[in-house]
Design a protein around this nucleic acid. Structure first.
Length: 339
DNA sequence: TAGTAGGATAATA
DNA sequence: TATTATCCTACTA
């Protein structure tokens, strides 16, 4: 494992975690090569501003995270090592089996999807530990890049110069051809509002990588905005990964089951979906976009949105699984057979 | 503008 | 084949 990196400035020393070492080495090489304007003293002093105005929550698509490490195949081994040797990951706890709707007879319900064996649970939990660490590493890497580039972690706050720095950085990270000129008139808000197709028009070669990489930054900014730092961040990271983790299980799940899972974890998901009357099975979707994104993650459907999700919910009306409550309200639904 | 409702059809497991 | 995804129009708050 590589040693921690220490960056010494005017009397100040910035010591970075071991996990960030390769990233930082890469960063230093970048700064040297590109003759970037970042001053180390600024790097130390810079505090990312997290007080940006409210915005949409970008989805966290796991496939994007792979891209961060395309140049370092040993990375996964490093994370695995740290998860076992250091033992700082989440504690291994028995996995609580999600509740099933006792009335609705759904194909395939009785077997694996909601009743994993103990061995499967342990295996999934171990995977969750590694995944949780991965997200933590990604967040650290972004923080480090912010310090090195002297930009805020929130792309929405970038000016044109910040965008150019980020582009240079991304070019370096993925060894892309120079694309800065194609984006020279854009600030962070412009960049964030661009679709992948917009990226493609400006840079056919690099659009996929740039768009995915920006998605990671947007996700990280969103995660930071939801919590602050330290333990909160770790908890949020774990939460997001547990959301995403489900998409890795490969097990089919019905939408109503998924919604019930969220409702049964108010600590994690209470901000986006909650019971209004648990006894009657009435629930409210507080953050439609976020619930839709979670569903998209679970089903590996990045294009999922609330429009589509709600259409699926409405399919349950005929089947007698979910209905609108007697007093219909927006974003409020009712399980026909509450637990 | 966002949510609701439901028809039609495609995709998927 | 059942379920969900996607797209659509019309309507409502």
């Amino acid at each position: 494992m590589a040693s921690p990196v220490r960056i010494q400035t005017d009397g100040s020393v910035l010591q970075l975690p071991r996990s960030a070492t390769s990233f930082v080495e890469s960063s230093l090489a970048f700064l040297k090569q590109e003759d970037n304007v970042v001053q180390t003293s600024e790097m130390i002093d810079h505090k990312p501003r997290l007080d940006g105005s409210d915005r949409g929550h970008p989805g966290l698509y796991l496939s994007c995270f792979d891209m961060l490490f395309t140049e370092d195949a040993t990375w996964l081994v490093r994370v695995s090592d740290s998860s076992t040797a250091v033992g700082t990951g989440p504690r291994l706890e028995p996995c609580q089996e999600p509740e099933q709707c006792p009335v609705i007879d759904s194909p395939g319900l009785g077997s694996s999807p909601l009743s994993p064996t103990l061995e499967e649970q342990v295996e999934e939990r171990s995977l969750e530990q590694v995944q949780s660490l991965v997200v933590g590493e990604v967040l650290k890497d972004i923080e480090t890049a912010c310090k090195l580039l002297n930009i805020t972690p929130d792309p929405m706050e970038w000016n044109c110069g910040n965008v150019q720095k980020w582009l240079l950085w991304t070019e370096h990270l993925y060894r892309l051809p120079q694309v800065g000129k194609a984006f020279q008139d854009l600030d962070g808000k412009d960049l964030c509002s661009m679709s992948e197709e917009d990226f493609r028009q400006r840079s056919p070669q690099c659009s996929e990588t740039l768009h995915a990489h920006l998605d990671i930054w947007k996700s990280a900014a969103w995660m930071k905005e939801r919590g602050s730092v330290g333990e909160t961040r770790i908890r949020e990271t774990e939460e997001l990964w547990s959301e995403a983790d489900s998409s890795c299980s490969g097990q089919p799940i019905h939408l109503w089951q998924f919604l019930r899972e969220l409702l049964l974890k108010p600590h994690s998901y209470g901000r986006c979906i909650r019971w209004l009357n648990k006894e009657k099975g009435i629930f409210k979707i507080e953050d439609s976009a976020h619930v839709a994104r979670l569903w998209g993650l679970r089903k590996n459907r990045p294009a999922m949105n609330y429009d589509k999700l709600s259409r699926s919910i409405r399919q349950y009306y005929k089947k007698g699984i979910i209905r609108k409550p007697d007093v219909s309200q927006r974003l409020v639904y009712q399980f026909v057979h509450p637990v």
